[in-house]
C-alpha cells in the first residue's frame, strides 16, 4: 500500500503552476480557455528564461485584466490597438519580448488595421489571438469570427450572411502577408492540444529571439458562458463546429505557407 503522503514530496514534483503567473485568482468563467492559454504562455516564458524581457500588451475584452495575471511588465491597450503599442515598444527595445494577447473582437474587428499593418511591416512581435467566435465581456454579441447560423445576443436568430456577412478567417489572411514569419492555429481543450499549443507558442517566442518578424498564434477557444453550454459541452461543440471553419494546424512556417 502506497500512501499519498509518500508520493507528495518535492523530489516527486512533476507539475506545478508557474511563477510567471501571479497569485491573483483569474476572473474568467469556469472552464474558459483564457486561463489555460495564459498558463501556457507563462510556462514558455519561464522555460525560456525571458521573464525580465517579456512585455505583455493586454487588450479590451474578457482578457482586459491579463496584466494582473502575467507576472511580467504589462500595458493595457485601447480596444484593438495592441499591435501598434507592441510595435513601438519592440522597436524601442529590440531585445525585449513584446507580445500582444487579443480576442477576436479586438484583433479582427476594431483592431483590423493595427493587426494587418503590424503583420505587414513584419514587426518582431508575438501576437496571441484567442478566437471564441463571440464577444464574451460585453455579454455574448456577434464577433467577426461568429459562425453562420450561430446565435448571439446581436444575432438572436443566428448569424446570417445577408445581414452580417461572413466569418472572418483573419489568420489565413495574415498568412498571405510577407511580414508574417510564423502563422499557426491551435487549441487548448485537451492535453495533447495543450502540448501542441505550447510548442507553437514556444516557436513564436524563439522566432522573436531570432528577430524573424511577426509570429501569429491563433488559439481556437471556448466561451461556455457566451455559447450557453457547460465547459465540457462547449469544448465538444468547438471541435464539431469551430474546427471545420477554423482548422487547427500550422499555416505558415519559417516564412513559407504550409501546403495542404
Amino acid at each position: 500500500m502506497v500512501f499519498n503522503q509518500d508520493i507528495i514530496k518535492p523530489e516527486n514534483l512533476v507539475y506545478k503552476r508557474t511563477n510567471v503567473l501571479t497569485d491573483a485568482v483569474m476572473h474568467y468563467c469556469p472552464g474558459c480557455g483564457h486561463g489555460t492559454i495564459h498558463r501556457v504562455i507563462a510556462e514558455v516564458i519561464e522555460e525560456m528564461g525571458i521573464q525580465d524581457k517579456a512585455i505583455c500588451i493586454a487588450p479590451v475584452g474578457c482578457s482586459v485584466l491579463a496584466y494582473n495575471y502575467f507576472n511580467v511588465d504589462s500595458q493595457g491597450a485601447a480596444h484593438g490597438r495592441a499591435p501598434a503599442i507592441a510595435t513601438a515598444i519592440q522597436r524601442l527595445y529590440p531585445d525585449n519580448h513584446v507580445f500582444t494577447y487579443q480576442g477576436d473582437g479586438d484583433l479582427a474587428a476594431i483592431g483590423t488595421a493595427e493587426t494587418i499593418h503590424a503583420c505587414n511591416r513584419g514587426e518582431n512581435i508575438v501576437i496571441i489571438f484567442v478566437n471564441n467566435g463571440i464577444y464574451g465581456m460585453t455579454g455574448g454579441q456577434m464577433a467577426p469570427t461568429t459562425l453562420i447560423g450561430m446565435k448571439t445576443a446581436t444575432t438572436p436568430y443566428g448569424r446570417s450572411v445577408e445581414l452580417n456577412g461572413y466569418p472572418l478567417q483573419i489568420t489565413e489572411l495574415l498568412a498571405e502577408l510577407p511580414g508574417t514569419y510564423y502563422v499557426t492555429r491551435q487549441s487548448v481543450h485537451t492535453p495533447a492540444a495543450v502540448r501542441k499549443a505550447k510548442k507553437a507558442i514556444r516557436q513564436a517566442f524563439e522566432n522573436q529571439k531570432g528577430k524573424k518578424g511577426t509570429s501569429f498564434v491563433e488559439l481556437v477557444s471556448n466561451c461556455n458562458s457566451g455559447w450557453k453550454m457547460t465547459p465540457v459541452a462547449a469544448n465538444k461543440w468547438m471541435e464539431e463546429n469551430m474546427f471545420p471553419k477554423y482548422p487547427v494546424g500550422d499555416i505558415k512556417v519559417n516564412g513559407e505557407k504550409v501546403s495542404k
Partner: peptide
Amino acid sequence: MVVLQAESETSSINMVYGGAGAGKKV
C-alpha cells in the same frame, strides 16, 4: 531615435502610448 510612419493617426498615438509607457521620450 526611432522614426516610423504608421498606418493611421490612431495607430501613431497608440505607438506613442506604448513607447511612453516604456519610459521613452516619444
